[in-house]
Write a protein that binds this DNA or RNA. Sequence first.
DNA 1: CTTCCTGCAAAGCATTTGCATCCAT
DNA 2: ATGGATGCAAATGCTTTGCAGGAAG
Lengths: 143, 143
Amino acid sequence: MHAAGQPERHAVALLDGRGVRATPQRTRVLAELVREPNDATAQELHERLRARGERIGLATVYRALSVLADEGVVDVLAHRPGEACYRVCGGEHHHHLVCSSCHRVVELADCRLDTWLDDVAAAHGFDRLEHRLELTGVCADCR
Amino acid sequence: MHAAGQPERHAVALLDGRGVRATPQRTRVLAELVREPNDATAQELHERLRARGERIGLATVYRALSVLADEGVVDVLAHRPGEACYRVCGGEHHHHLVCSSCHRVVELADCRLDTWLDDVAAAHGFDRLEHRLELTGVCADCR
DNA sequence: CTTCCTGCAAAGCATTTGCATCCAT
DNA sequence: ATGGATGCAAATGCTTTGCAGGAAG
């Protein structure tokens, strides 16, 4: 068993059972993202895959990420101006705390907004209320 | 006193007392943003100014917004992929509740996140924590 | 006079798309 | 064979920059 095996299997597992083909390229893009604890841009992922010796086009990385985002396998974070960041995320509702300096991401499991938001929705007669919360700050290492 | 006077004066007031020159172009860009209850892109602002008859270049709009952002007069939002949105946010902290059908905006004066966010910041060693909350739903009239 | 500001056009990036080819069913 | 996937290059859209002229201090 070789060292790179685990992210690959994780990636295959994430793709399994969906309506999408688990092509080698998609698996590799996702595996590369699984290796990344925070988030990465399409270009960064492409560079790493090429450095790893994979033959894959930049457009394919973009197309793979688009498919993965549609499937809900990865989240698209728009905290950096001018480029999108991608991240492997669980299905549960959660928010991200992002360091504006090093882009380290902390996943927040609990969301304490629902009680307040129920009140807000009721007070203003709104229905089907959805929310998106982005938290940015400077982490301890970048202070 | 003409109808367009108020946003202009508001813009001049926002620029006053800082180390930046309140040039006509900067004032107009900011005044245009003051008229916008939500947020707008640089290109949208440029279009509106041209439609209003102002002679202003697109690059100047970008440069003005850059200066205004550096001064903290406007906020840069990166929630739309591929382009930056700008918003006047010098005043009180608040959030917007937007109807996804008719785009009516309800301004929420109170924000009940600070207590929780202070805990979050402390728990993860983050400093200068900022947050942006987007609320969308369907209002009573559109139900 | 010197410095900053502006407009225009060209350049710079991230991302998307057209198209011929390739692969799996 | 047939439809989707890929790679490359060209195109697109947002934003920045180089430069010459102009206004402000």
